[in-house]
Amino acid sequence: MVAKTTIDMRGAFCPGPLMELIANLKLVEIGDEIEVLSTDKGSAMDIPEWVKKVKHETVSIEQIGDIWHIVVKKMK
């Protein structure tokens, strides 16, 4: 079963949300998902870019009000 955790990085500036995501990815199993909540527009662009570069997977990215919900699956 896929585990999904949420990290709340609302109010944090670049590259805070990305760094927190990476730290949390180290703690979960391959196939697990992490949802990042962020109010930083730059991170909403940068996180999928980093995910692509290091070959994880962006499951979804959605803006609800001022908050970005970015779901990333650990692939390796």
Binding site: C14, P15, L18, M19, I22, D46, W50, K53, V54
Partner: peptide, 11 residues
């Protein structure tokens, strides 16, 4: 610091 950290975590 931003450049160093982001580059390092980007392998």
């Amino acid at each position: 610091a931003m450049a160093a950290a982001v580059a390092a975590v980007s392998e």
